[in-house]
């Protein structure tokens, strides 16, 4: 059993690395890269949502900021892309600390609304600041691999996103086994009780918020270098944030591989709808319907259904007969 539980992830990782050479065309490599990107972002979102229970619909703000930060560093300051990417992500993380200090003061629906406000504000700022960002015209970012053709670029970015996914998974796994993770899970169950036991709830929530923003910002930066064209309407779209939530909930927020599983279902489904139905809004409606169905009927996600722990008897000490026997002795 243990061998299987260790071997399966390794086998899956090997298959994932080999994926671009196993599929018959570059379109499927592109779709695979997109799926892995979403898997990395959903896993990163789950560092906040899964551990603390704080649902952010505004994580696309960090995706957009990571993308624009990388793009602006490369185009305006001629910073090499390999440096621009982490610098931009770190700046976004610092920004997320500031936002987090204010945002995590409120809980539940109020936090969701604050997160939506964040992404809307970022969209307005980037669209309005035309001299820097190009406004609604967008920002063009030169390809870091000009000698490669489009298909080969998809292959490179597929693997870069895979590395990012690996880092996000590793972080989630590490946090889940740490004292920090135990504190975060206590916050999810009962924040006041956690506070009374000495868990520094405010600091932990901000740390989870910022850590979660870091990987999403890196995904945004990679996306900017991959696509080369940034449109603020798409980059700061609430839909991207909703995808992260949907993927995590569908797969299971309490599990390491939950968001990855969700991404493996939702991202290809989105691509399928787009190909089958063209540029209609059907895929958006389908996303909304799926989100409602998941919240109503499977809030714990697929993996929780599959790995549900057998509770065992809750009062297992002894049967009534045994007790009577004991009393008679």
């Amino acid at each position: 059993m243990r061998t299987a539980s260790r071997g399966l992830p390794l086998l899956a990782a090997a298959l994932a690395i080999a994926y671009p050479w196993l599929v018959p065309n570059y379109y499927l490599v592109y779709a695979g890269a997109l799926t892995v990107m979403y898997a990395a972002m959903a896993t990163s979102w789950n560092l906040l949502g899964g551990f603390t229970g704080y649902v952010s619909l505004g994580h696309s703000a960090f995706f957009g900021l990571g993308a624009y930060g990388t793009g602006l560093l490369v185009t305006r300051l001629d910073v090499p892309w390999a440096l621009a990417l982490p610098v931009s992500a770190l700046l976004v993380t610092v920004f997320a600390v500031g936002v987090g200090v204010a945002a995590v003061r409120v809980r539940g629906a109020s936090f969701v609304i604050v997160s939506i406000a964040l992404v809307s504000m970022m969209n307005l700022v980037v669209q309005g600041w035309r001299s820097l960002t190009g406004g609604s015209t967008g920002l063009q970012v030169p390809s870091p691999f000009p000698d490669l053709h489009r298909g080969q670029t998809h292959m490179v970015f597929f693997h870069l996103f895979l590395v990012l996914l690996g880092l996000a998974l590793l972080s989630w796994w590490y946090v889940s086994r740490s004292r920090f993770g135990a504190g975060l899970r206590a916050i999810r169950e009962d924040e006041d009780k956690a506070e009374s036991l000495g868990v520094p709830t405010a600091a932990y929530k901000v740390a989870a918020f910022a850590l979660s923003a870091l990987f999403v910002a890196l995904a945004g930066g990679l996306y900017a270098l991959w696509f080369g064209s940034l449109d603020p309407i798409f980059m700061f779209s609430i839909l991207i944030g909703s995808y992260m939530v949907l993927m995590s909930l569908l797969g299971g927020v309490r599990h390491l591989y939950g968001p990855l599983l969700g991404a493996l279902i939702v991202a290809p489904a989105g691509e399928y709808f787009l190909i089958a139905l063209g540029e209609t809004q059907v895929h958006l409606a389908a996303t909304g319907v799926l989100l409602i169905l998941v919240v109503l009927f499977m809030p714990e996600g697929i993996l929780s259904r599959l790995t549900r722990r057998r509770p065992g008897p809750s009062i297992p000490e002894e049967s009534a007969g045994q007790r009577l026997e004991g009393a008679a002795r």
């Binding site: 135990a182 899970r185 206590a186 169950e189 009962d190 009780k193 956690a194 036991l197 868990v199």
Partner: peptide
């Protein structure tokens, strides 16, 4: 903490 194990509760 209902969703946590006894061990996790005690450690908290």
């Amino acid at each position: 903490f209902r969703e946590m194990t006894v061990a996790e509760n005690v450690r908290l």
